[in-house]
Nucleic acid binder design. Structure first.
Ligand SMILES: [Mn+2]
Ligand SMILES: [Mn+2]
Ligand SMILES: [Zn+2]
Ligand SMILES: [Zn+2]
Lengths: 118, 118
DNA sequence: GTAGTTTTTTAGAATAATTCTAATTCCAAT
DNA sequence: ATTGGAATTAGAATTATTCTAAAAAACTAC
């Protein structure tokens, strides 16, 4: 954990709105005015590869980042652009409901929902 | 339906391996040697926006395209790079198992699984 | 502490999938 | 055949991300 990585991680935990690298860059600059965007990408890569942050992709938009390590999905509100966490109901294992091929080993399961709030 | 759109659509249906735009370009060239990559993108955009083809994104890799309109997920085999369709077991409505916010309207549900075959 | 080594950060260039622009081609209707 | 709109095309532009190389920082013996 370097100073920069710590601030990036704190930025992610302090507002769990799934910011993009650019948004994280702007928030990190308030704390570390000389930080560079390359460093933000480097820090995020370090955090993601050490499984302390998840990278969330919705379509081909810029990646977003999430510090919630519990298994969960994402709801993308098309009206507001917000992305919020969606938990699975207790004791639900989604894989049970899928017709997976023989011998399939799941390493990662990603659920993205798009819609809006009535 | 123009000639190009028809060939792109046929390419997609004839081998349902979720090809990228580049792969579709190469396959289409066998039928239409003068077709351009821009046209492939234009055709795919037309097919996707008319809901006859689905765009499938796995991480930040190039988009893949799928002519299967039934609700289904995707299994991305990390060992081979293949992407295959995953059907939900009969009469399963995944949304039932999710803790959605009050008033959430689902317009699209996307399930991507990464793993391998033992 | 200093010298040497490794890691991280930084600025800026490079990359690559996709989109855009503007010119040309196609095609259906008159 | 002419025309008008839509589609296709080649190539330039865009943009999120990655790469490169140099400077800074962090570590590790001595
Ligand atoms: Mn995704
Ligand atoms: Mn996706
Ligand atoms: Zn999340
Ligand atoms: Zn599919």
């Amino acid at each position: 954990m370097t100073k920069q990585r710590k601030v990036v991680y704190d930025v992610l935990r302090s507002k769990r709105d799934h910011p993009t690298a650019q948004m994280i860059f702007e928030r990190t600059q308030k704390e570390l005015p000389t930080v560079s965007l390359a460093t933000i990408y480097n820090c995020l890569e370090a955090l993601v590869s050490h499984d302390v942050v998840k990278q969330v992709n919705v379509d081909r938009e810029p990646s977003r980042y999430c510090p919630n390590l519990a298994e969960h999905g994402h709801f993308h509100n098309k009206q507001t652009g917000d992305v919020i966490d969606i938990n699975f109901k207790p004791d639900v294992n989604l894989a049970e409901f899928l017709d997976l091929p023989e011998g399939a080993v799941i390493e990662d399961l990603e659920l993205n929902i798009k819609g809006f709030l009535k």
